[in-house]
């Protein structure tokens, strides 16, 4: 057990990736290993990237890996892709864009599928972040598609959140989860060579201008960075290294304004929520599922023999004796 943790601390990719796997697969011992991992965390700068599908997030991550490696920093990447709701399977495609770094021992890329609807995603990602943190990765980049609540939750694990947008999405700024815009530390206009990039910029500026000062903790107003065409190597790598600098600046801002504490509290709350859910809700649901009660209950609900509220109260009374 402790041996496992030691290995991870020494940066052993095999042990780390296996532990992440066990967390995803909900293997019981993995949770107890995490208990030993948790106290060792706190080293890494966690950077979240979110934005609509195909916005170029993975391409950006690939560029950022390069930029951070040139600064001499080690990088972990957690790339989240959706599980097919129909088959439970997934093609995890983000890695393709970063594959040129596969052999760099200072880079560890791990793809994660969103898996079931029962949540748990942000727990798996949270734990994966802890694991990479304990491995000693200086920067951890977390990529998710910015469409669902789960993804917004994941961003609570990040010190710095990049919201990646592309021109020509029409009125899509509105469509992007308001929650995501709220947590943005930096806006990136990707594929800026395309028509509409100035318009997008204006819209973002207007949006930021309308926000109350309280939306900018410590006075950090999210910068809007344009990222040049990924197909033009020199321009792109320039844009990306500017972006990396801005990411660093944001972290320094958190530190200098003593905002890390706020951040940690927010993260701890999310994490705790998850942990409670995992400790309470999962076993309850599993229990109900295993003895077939869940199906029966759903049947009763469908036939309107009872309502979900009463039923939930019944369950709570049964399992959580203390509360009632």
């Amino acid at each position: 057990m402790v041996d496992k943790v030691k290995k991870i601390q020494s940066g052993d990719v095999r042990s780390a990736s296996r532990l992440i796997r066990h967390i995803e697969d909900n293997v019981a011992e993995a949770r107890s290993t995490m208990k030993d991992i948790f106290p060792l965390t706190g080293h890494s700068h966690v950077v979240g990237l979110t934005g609509p599908p195909g916005a170029g997030k993975s391409t950006l991550v690939d560029g950022l890996i390069d930029a951070f490696r040139k600064m001499g920093r080690t990088v972990g990447v957690i790339a989240v892709d959706p599980t097919s709701p129909f088959t439970g399977g997934a093609i995890l495609g983000d890695r393709i864009r970063m594959q040129r770094h596969a052999e760099d021992p200072g880079v560890f890329v791990r793809s994660v599928a969103t898996r079931g609807a029962l949540g748990g995603l942000s727990r798996a990602v949270g734990d994966a972040i802890h694991i990479m943190d304990v491995m000693g990765k200086d920067v951890i980049l977390v990529e998710t598609v910015g469409t669902g609540q789960q993804e917004v939750d994941i961003m609570h694990y990040a010190h710095t959140v990049l919201v990646v947008l592309i021109p020509g999405m029409g009125d899509d700024i509105q469509a992007i989860k308001a929650g995501i815009l709220e947590i943005a530390s930096i806006f990136v206009i990707n594929k800026a060579e395309r028509e509409g990039s100035s318009k997008l910029r204006r819209e973002l500026v207007t949006m930021l201008n309308m926000a109350p000062e309280s939306a900018f903790p410590g006075g950090w107003r999210p910068p809007i960075l344009k990222c040049d065409n990924a197909f033009e190597p020199s321009g792109f790598s320039q844009s990306v290294s500017d972006l990396a600098l801005s990411i660093n600046e944001h972290y320094e801002h958190l530190v200098s304004k003593s905002l890390i504490g706020n951040w940690s509290a927010r993260k701890a709350a999310t994490e705790f929520n998850e942990a409670i859910r995992c400790a309470i809700l999962d076993p309850v649901l599993n229990d109900l599922m295993a003895n077939g009660e869940l199906d029966a209950m759903i049947g009763r609900l469908v036939n309107k023999e009872t309502d979900p509220y009463t039923l939930a109260e019944e369950i709570a009374t049964r399992y959580l004796k203390k509360m009632t």
Partner: peptide
Amino acid sequence: GEYRDPGLY
């Protein structure tokens, strides 16, 4: 610049 397979599936 070098173009790598975008690996669309």
